[in-house]
């Protein structure tokens, strides 16, 4: 029987400005520390959170991020979920390709973030918005 993921603590941050992106980064770092992720894993998670928060701001027209410490059996981790009600992503496969960008970035936002985390899920609907959920587990 699969063990359910337990949420130990969490916070919600609105993303509407540059400063909010920084705030999400800091929240991700604080929680990564309390979940006892290694330094490299902390850095990877915070970087992924930064990419995704910026996506939410730039492409999603703002939204919100939920960052939480989760536990699955003996392992702890940090989960970050980014939700926007923007235009959605018309071609997800394309958006996950390296180098593809619809904005001003290097086109590494979504695909790069995926490589930095252990679990990565996107659900998107054109016209309704996008939700990206990532998890980094302790090793």
């Amino acid at each position: 029987m699969p063990t359910p993921v337990v949420v130990e603590s969490g916070e919600i941050h609105e993303i509407h400005t540059d400063a909010d992106v920084v705030r999400v980064r800091q929240a991700a770092r604080t929680l990564a520390l309390s979940a006892k992720l290694s330094l490299v894993d902390q850095t990877k998670l915070v970087t992924a959170a930064s990419e995704l928060a910026r996506n939410t701001l730039v492409y999603g027209g703002g939204g919100r991020a939920t960052v939480e410490v989760v536990r699955l059996g003996p392992r702890r981790g940090v989960r970050a979920v980014f939700v926007d009600e923007g235009p959605g992503i018309p071609d997800l496969d394309l958006a996950l390709t390296d180098g593809w960008t619809s904005g001003s970035g290097m086109g590494l936002g979504l695909s790069g973030a995926r490589r930095l985390v252990d679990e990565f899920e996107v659900s998107t609907d054109v016209g309704t918005g996008t939700t990206v959920s990532v998890v980094k587990w302790t090793r």
Binding site: V40, T47, D98, L108, G112, R115, L116
Partner: peptide, 14 residues
């Protein structure tokens, strides 16, 4: 540059 940052950048593809 810090080591953890360098490792992350490489993984990110930068």
């Amino acid at each position: 540059m810090r080591p953890a940052v360098a490792i992350t950048l490489v993984e990110l593809g930068l």
